[in-house]
Write a protein that binds this DNA or RNA. Structure first.
Length: 642
DNA sequence: TCGCTCTACC
């Protein structure tokens, strides 16, 4: 049973300082208890904001030792500026804020970002809240480089970042699997920012670390959070337990649960029960797992279970031989669901149940439960569709999967790289290579950006059915759009050799020598030579290489001549020396040059005393721009933004 | 009245 609102608030008031000086623990408690409905949560957020408006919120957000950073009477111009408080969100600036929010809602992020930038130097500066809203929207769409570039812009324009800004950046780094950069940013936040990290900072970082299989570091971070005097956070503990479940460390799961329980006493929030059950199931302690189940959802349970918490329990049941119980619980959730007061199912509930039915081989019921989403005003997102398509493809029901793909189009849900790669894989598996490459083309046409894994799949699949010509076309696109390595070339060399397409092979070697982005290593040269030898055309490779050498020498000579001329003209020895680099050096030189330029830029930013000098992530921009959330280990393709 | 980050599953 949820506490009624007045009781809840008055209870909190007795526990905390008067509302004029809301203590950190006040805010934390709110978070911990969470709310029965989004409306209730929104109402509380509004109340909180009104309170914050009476007084600058910054002091109240500083959880520890405020005396550590006294207000300096002679402020150093290089010191980071304090962010503005919500109270500035009035008048023109509020109008601008709302205008930009409208653009975001209309999904016109380019316009929103542009308006934000243009307003910076107008008489109506956007507030940090407006900038955060735009950056958050960019983050949601995985437009990381746009996010970083907007941040750099407002940073240089002197809009002081607040903790939410930092959380957004840390989140972006985590999403790009750059957890080290995220941790670096967190460290700089601790050292340099005029405020402390918030509980959300820890939630983002812990989730990012867990998602990237760095549970140990995540546990350390949780301890840091506690050391800073922040309240133990159920969400953080839940992420950690999830990570330990994935690592098959049930003892760790149970220990974390015990720790949380010890710190909080009674667990009002049922968030962790699913993972706790999984911990017991991992240990083979089914009875204990079901005792937890009873504790969480039993008749007299006082534990508050929202949709997410229920879903996690559903998952624990269905993955551990208790699917019939999961069905019973799901039915109950459907009955209890009573929006807007009580939300006990969401789209995830249907996804978990569909997965459960699939695991049982009950395909019709899986599809049926998926379609039931609409009944509760849940609509599947691309993740839900992908999940279904994956399951259907896995069960060999490719026609049904393709039906769902068409339905996505009808419902205006955009398929992503993952969708296309799934369909492509399945078509190849069914000897429908043309359809497979058709899906690949559709992916590119719809503006998605296949990653190396996706390219390799389509190329490999086409080679296997002997469609070398089309494979070459895609290989050409891949060279153009992505960094290819010698392994990619090796695959192509071998395929062309096996198909006897030696002209194409020689052309590829020629292109490769021209591009120079991937060196023709001796191993690679051997692969090419091997293939050509079978056709008795090895000499042609030698000729090609010799020709290249000659060209190189000619180019070097020409350069030297030019250099000599230049040297004569200006009579400086140094100049002629600096130009006397051979072609081989150019690539390395360029790399160093780029790095140097970046360094120069970021130190410039720090020197000019811009806000959050040391926190400027500009130096990491390149890295994240090149980062591909999906590149690392799945095939959903990346969104390298332009 | 509304207005910023995080809360299951590829």
């Amino acid at each position: 049973m949820a506490l009624s609102k007045p009781t809840f608030l008055s209870h909190l008031k007795t526990l905390t300082k008067p509302p004029h000086h809301p203590s950190p623990s006040f805010f934390l408690s709110c978070r911990l208890l969470s709310f029965a409905t989004p409306e209730e949560a929104a109402a509380e957020r509004r109340r909180r904001k009104r309170r914050l408006r009476i007084e600058p919120p910054l002091n109240s957000l500083r959880h520890t030792q405020p005396q550590q950073r006294p207000i300096n009477p002679n402020p150093n111009p290089n010191a980071p500026k304090l962010p503005e408080s919500v109270s500035v969100l009035t008048g023109n600036r509020l109008t601008l804020h709302n205008k930009i929010l409208t653009l975001i809602r209309q999904n016109d992020l380019d316009e929103a970002a542009l308006l934000t930038r243009h307003s910076i130097y107008s008489n109506c500066r956007p507030t940090i809240f407006t900038c955060n809203a735009v950056m958050a929207a960019l983050l949601r769409q995985s437009r990381y480089s746009d996010l970083l570039s907007l941040h750099r812009f407002i940073n240089q324009a002197g809009v002081a970042a607040n903790v939410v800004t930092h959380n957004l950046l840390i989140n972006a780094y985590c999403d790009c699997r750059k957890t080290d950069t995220a941790l670096e940013h967190y460290k700089q936040l601790i050292n340099d920012a005029p405020f402390n990290p918030s509980p959300t900072t820890y939630r983002i970082l812990v989730k990012g670390l867990v998602d990237n299989n760095k549970v140990d570091r995540a546990v350390e971070l949780k301890d840091e959070m506690l050391e800073k005097g922040l309240a133990p956070d159920t969400v953080v503990y839940n992420y950690l337990m999830l990570g330990l479940v994935k690592k098959s460390d049930p003892d760790g799961v149970l220990a974390l649960y015990e720790e949380l329980r010890e710190k909080l006493g009674f667990l009002l929030d049922g968030m962790v029960f699913g993972n706790l059950m999984k911990g017991y199931f991992l240990k083979g302690m089914e009875k204990e797992a079901m005792d937890c189940y009873e504790e969480a959802v039993g008749e007299n349970s006082k534990v508050r279970m929202a949709a997410v918490a229920y879903n996690s329990v559903l998952d624990a049941l269905s993955k551990n031989g208790k699917f019939e119980e999961a069905i019973r619980l799901f039915d109950r959730m459907m009955v209890e669901h009573n929006p807007p007061r009580r939300l006990t199912v969401n789209l995830g509930s249907f996804n978990v149940m569909a997965d459960g039915f699939f695991a049982q081989g009950r395909f019709e019921e899986a599809i049926e439960v998926f379609k039931k989403m609409g009944e509760k005003r849940c609509s599947p997102d691309s993740l839900s569709f992908n999940n279904m398509i994956e399951q259907l493809c896995g069960a060999g029901m490719v026609a049904e999967a393709e039906g769902l793909y068409r339905e996505m189009g009808e419902q205006g849900i955009k398929p992503d790289e993952f969708t296309y790669v799934l369909l492509m894989d399945s078509c190849f598996a069914q000897n429908r290579a043309d359809d497979a490459s058709g899906y690949f083309r559709k992916m590119v046409e719809s503006g998605l950006r296949p990653n190396a894994v996706a390219f390799n799949k389509v190329i490999d699949g086409l080679i296997k059915v002997g469609n070398i010509d089309e494979a070459m076309v895609f290989f050409g696109q891949m060279v153009e759009k992505l960094k290819v390595d010698s392994a990619n070339y090796e695959m192509m060399f071998k395929a062309l050799g096996e198909a006897g397409k030696l002209d194409e092979l020689l052309k590829l070697v020629g292109d490769m020598l021209k591009e120079e982005s991937v060196g023709l290593s001796s191993e690679l040269q051997e692969v090419a030579a091997d293939a050509l030898r079978k056709g008795g055309r090895e000499e042609e490779l030698m000729k090609l290489l010799e020709e290249k050498e000659r060209e190189k020498a000619e180019a070097a000579a020409a350069k030297e001549a030019e250099a000599a001329e230049a040297a004569n003209a200006s009579s400086t020895v140094a100049e002629s020396e600096s130009i006397n680099f051979s072609a081989e050096g150019i690539l390395a030189e360029e790399t160093i040059g780029t790095e140097a330029a970046d360094d120069g830029e970021s130190s410039e930013t720090a020197d000019s005393g811009e806000v959050g000098g040391g926190l400027d992530p500009a130096d990491a921009t390149e890295e994240v721009e090149g980062a591909n959330k999906a590149d690392a280990d799945d095939e959903s393709g990346g969104r390298k933004e332009v």
